[in-house]
Design a binder for these strands. Structure first.
Lengths: 342, 342
DNA sequence: CTGTTAGCGCTTTCAC
DNA sequence: GTGAAAGCGCTAACAG
C-alpha cells in the first residue's frame, strides 16, 4: 500500500504527469484548461496525494531546510526563544529547520552536508567559551559553501550577516526604567567576569550611558564584594542578570532589607525562574525571537538571491513584577505584567 | 561548484559507481579488493564527498526521520526532556527527528506526509485538554499508515506502543523519601482539579499506597483550602507539583513557619524554578529522557520490523535540596544534590 | 571481483 | 494546451 505518486494521479485523471506537476504547483498561472485542472484536483484528492518533498528536493537540488549550528544547552531559554523565531520565519518562507543532535565540535557539518541543507544559522554563545571557536566554524561553513548567518557573533562579517542581541540596550533600559520610577542613586551590580566578554562590557556600558545622559554619577560593584552593610545604603539596583539579582536579593532579605520597600532591583535579563524568586523579579527581556527571524530571513534571502522585505527589530521590553518600588508622583496605574516600555 | 557525487568519486578513482556505493556503505563486508577500496576512499576524501541522504532516501523509500506530534509548549520542561531522549535514541539508530512548526490541530500531518517521515512519536499532554483529541490523532496517523508510539496517552493501544510517565511512582517515592527521613504524619496536598485527569488521580494514589503500606493514615488536602492555622499543625508535606509547593511555602513563610525546621515539603515533580524558590525545593524527577528513548526505539523497531534490544526504564529520582528536614537518627551524611533514591 | 543499468518521484524543457 | 522524456544522486539487481 504505497503512497500515491504523481503518476498515479496522472493515470487516474487521464492526463500526463507533467500536467499534474504543473497544475498542482503553479497556483497562479493557468496554462492548462479548467477541465483538466479539475480532473487533476479531484484525482489527487481521491488518492490522498501528497507531493514528495524528497523527490522535489532531489530534482531542484534544494532541501528547503536550514541547519542550526548551536553551542547552547537545548533547554536554554535564550536558545529556545531564538529558535522559535527562526522556526517561525522558516515556516513563513517555506523552509524547515533541522538541528544536529550530535554534541561534538564539528560533526554537525557532515550531518548537514549529508542532509544537503540550503543554509545555516550559527547561534554563538554569549560568553566566549574556549571550546567554541567562532572563526573556525565560520571558516568551515564557508569552505562547505553553505550560506549562513551568525547570531551574537563576535566576528564581523563582510556581508552583514551578523545579528546581535543588544546587551547594552538591556541595562540602558533597566536604568531608564528605574529613573522613570523616580530612582536617582542607581547602582550597577555584576559578577567579576573578565572584561573580555563582550556581553559584560556592553551591559555595564548601557547602564553608564543612561546615567551619564541624566548627569548622574555611576557606581558599579561586583556582587562578590557586596556586604549587607553596603546593601543597606543602596536603594536602587540594576544587575546584569537574574542570578546576580538573586544573590543580591538573598543577602538583602537575610539582612532584613525589604524588597521593594527598602531596595528596588531590576535585572537586565529574564530567566525561567525570575518570577519565582522570593520577590518576583522585574526584568528586561530581549526580543530573541525577532533576532532569530531576522537571521533566518537573511540566510534565505541569500539562498534565493533576492532581498526579502525586512521587518524592523523591536526593542527590549520590561517585564514588570514586584521588585521595583514606584517613587514617582505620577503613580503606577498599570498592574504587574509584561508591557512595552520606552 | 556543485557538490561531488558518487559519479565524480567513481571517475576519479577509476571505478564504477556501484563499487563506490558498495564500498562506502558496507563497512563490514569487503567484496571489493583492498586496492579498489583504497582508491575509492582517497578519491572520496579528495573530493570532500558527502553521500546525499536525499537521494538515498529517494531510492530506499525511507527518509530516516521521525516526526513529533506535540501539544506542548516548545519550552516546556517535560517536553524538552522527553525530546532529548527521543533525539538521543534517534541519533543512535540513525534517525533524525523533525518537528512540525505549525501549531494548528492536524496540519502537521500534511507536513509530515510531504516529508515522508518513517514514523511518529505522539507526546500527549498531561492534562486532557479539550482541544487535544487523542483518539482522532491516532486515527489519522493510522489512516496515513504512519507507524507511531504514544507517550503519556490515555488510550490503550493494542500493539503496546504506549509509554507513560509513572505519576503514581512520583508521589510514592516522595512519600517514601519522607518516611526514610523519619517523618510519619505526612499530608498530601494538591489543587482541586477534577479527578478525571489521570495524572491527578495517580499522584494521590501513589501517596496513599505508600502510606497504607506503612499502616499510616492518609490525609489529603486541597491547597485552596489551606490556612496558616492548618499549616502550623503540619510538619511533613508531599505536594503534587512544584507550583503547589510554592503556594504552601509562601503561606508558611508568611506565617513565620520555618522550612525545613518546622515544615518539610517535597514536590512530586521538578520545574525549572524548583531550586530557586525561597527555600530550594526537594523534588522527584521523572526520567523523561528514558521514556522518550523507549518510545523512539519502539517506533523504529516497528519500521524496521525487528526487535531492538530494550533497556529497562529507570525509576524516578529524588533531587535533594533544602526543603526536607532529616529526623532519622542515622543522619544524613550526603550533601544536597541529585541522587538515586530507592 | 567489477561494471551496467533500471528506476525511486518529481520538474522542466521541448516537441507536437 | 498537452505529453514525452531526460535526469537529479543513489542503490541494487544482474551480467560479465
Amino acid at each position: 500500500m504505497k503512497k500515491a505518486t504523481i503518476k498515479d494521479v496522472a493515470a487516474l485523471a487521464g492526463v500526463s504527469v507533467s500536467a499534474v506537476s504543473y497544475v498542482l504547483n503553479q497556483s497562479t498561472e493557468k496554462k492548462y484548461s479548467e477541465k483538466t485542472r479539475q480532473k487533476i484536483y479531484s484525482a489527487a484528492e481521491k488518492l490522498g496525494y501528497h507531493p514528495n518533498h524528497i523527490a522535489r528536493g532531489m530534482r531542484s537540488q534544494r532541501s528547503y531546510s536550514i541547519g542550526i549550528v548551536n553551542w547552547w544547552e537545548i533547554n536554554n531559554r535564550v536558545f529556545i526563544k531564538t529558535l522559535e523565531g527562526i522556526t517561525a520565519m522558516g515556516e513563513k518562507l517555506g523552509y524547515s529547520v533541522v538541528i544536529c543532535p550530535s554534541a561534538d565540535s564539528y560533526s554537525y557539518l557532515s550531518y548537514y552536508e549529508n542532509k544537503r541543507i540550503d543554509g545555516a544559522v550559527l547561534i554563538a554563545p554569549v560568553t566566549s567559551m574556549a571550546e567554541f571557536n567562532e572563526m573556525e566554524h565560520i571558516r568551515r561553513l564557508q569552505k562547505a559553501k553553505i550560506p549562513f548567518a551568525v547570531i551574537n557573533g563576535h566576528t564581523d562579517l563582510p556581508q552583514g550577516n551578523c545579528f546581535r542581541y543588544d546587551f547594552a540596550q538591556t541595562t540602558y533600559l533597566a536604568t531608564d526604567y528605574l529613573l522613570a520610577k523616580g530612582h536617582r542613586e542607581i547602582i550597577y551590580i555584576a559578577p567579576k567576569y573578565g572584561e573580555e566578554i563582550r556581553e559584560v562590557g556592553l551591559r555595564q556600558k548601557g547602564y553608564m550611558t543612561r546615567m551619564q545622559e541624566e548627569g548622574l554619577p555611576c557606581l558599579c560593584r561586583a556582587v562578590e564584594d557586596l556586604t549587607p552593610q553596603m546593601l543597606k545604603q543602596f536603594h536602587s539596583i540594576v544587575t546584569n542578570k537574574t542570578d546576580t539579582a538573586k544573590k543580591v536579593m538573598d543577602m538583602a532579605l537575610t539582612a532584613g532589607i525589604k524588597i521593594p520597600e527598602d531596595l528596588s532591583i531590576i535585572a537586565a535579563n529574564t530567566e525561567y525562574y525570575s518570577e519565582y524568586l522570593p520577590v518576583p523579579l522585574t526584568t528586561v527581556q530581549i526580543p530573541f525571537q525577532s533576532i532569530g527571524k531576522m537571521a533566518m530571513r537573511r540566510v534565505i534571502s541569500a539562498i534565493e538571491h533576492h532581498d526579502l522585505s525586512s521587518e524592523e527589530m523591536p526593542a527590549c521590553m520590561v517585564l514588570e513584577q514586584n521588585s521595583v518600588k514606584n517613587l514617582s508622583s505620577e503613580g503606577n496605574k498599570e498592574g504587574k505584567g509584561m508591557r512595552i516600555y520606552s
